[in-house]
Design a protein around this nucleic acid. Structure first.
Lengths: 121, 121
DNA sequence: ACGGTAGTACGATAACCATCGTAGTACGGC
DNA sequence: GCCGTACTACGATGGTTATCGTACTACCGT
């Protein structure tokens, strides 16, 4: 109802609206860090259902929204799916090296704890 | 009372107890980010009262504790004062480049917003 | 048109957290 | 011993958040 002209528009912060605190907060949750690591590894637009997360679908939606509103990812509708992409270019322009350092740190920590054979090639 | 042998011992995580999520969370608060930036700039052990923070002393204590328990800083008693030092060596060993990237990002953001003349020499 | 799949919206809940004020402890100096 | 300074502990409070379940919408096949 309400016949919205674009019923599937998504709010994204522009590049200069992205705040460092929000990015760090978005990355400080284990589930969201997992999502971001997966996206960085695949380097493609992934649908939400691609991820195998230890939470329900509602919670997944919530985490993707936090990532989107923090400016970490960009979400677009593609038919019935919603594709997610890392905003690597924007983050790199604003905070050079930050995303790479966080991803490397997450990889190092994962290699230390838990998966002793999980190194990135 | 209770005659504790070291009544002024402070809990610090060991290097391998430091978790990336905790570090990112500690850095995702504006007040704490300000503290860390000051410490990185001065490169010396600073007392808590050195900082001019927009919160009360109780809240300041809380923020320093979050930073300490996250493994970002090391606190030691020196008479009536408590000296704070960045754990740059531990963080660099665990997460190479992370602290530097965050500090650079914070500096860049501060230069963009608010203080248009505040560049680091 | 119908059903299935993908994701959202809306509450609800419990945990966490940033903030404060007040009262208390530790130490140095007088 | 007494006082001031530096910081802490405790309790309270209000806001945010991570989580869930259920009900809903949007789109694609058939």
């Amino acid at each position: 109802m309400t016949t919205a002209t674009s019923p599937r528009a998504l709010e994204h912060p522009t590049r200069d609206q992205i705040r460092l605190e929000a990015v760090l907060h978005a990355l400080s949750d284990p589930v969201r860090l997992l999502i971001v690591r997966d996206m960085a590894r695949e380097r493609a637009e992934l649908s939400c259902s691609y991820f195998d997360l230890p939470v329900t679908k509602s919670t997944t939606t919530h985490h993707f929204r936090v990532l989107r509103e923090g400016g970490v990812i960009r979400q677009t509708y593609r038919g019935t799916a919603k594709l997610n992409a890392l905003r690597e270019d924007d983050l790199e322009a604003l905070f050079p090296g930050l995303l790479g350092a966080v991803l490397a740190a997450a990889g190092a920590q994962a290699a230390r704890e838990g998966e002793p054979g999980a190194q990135l090639s």
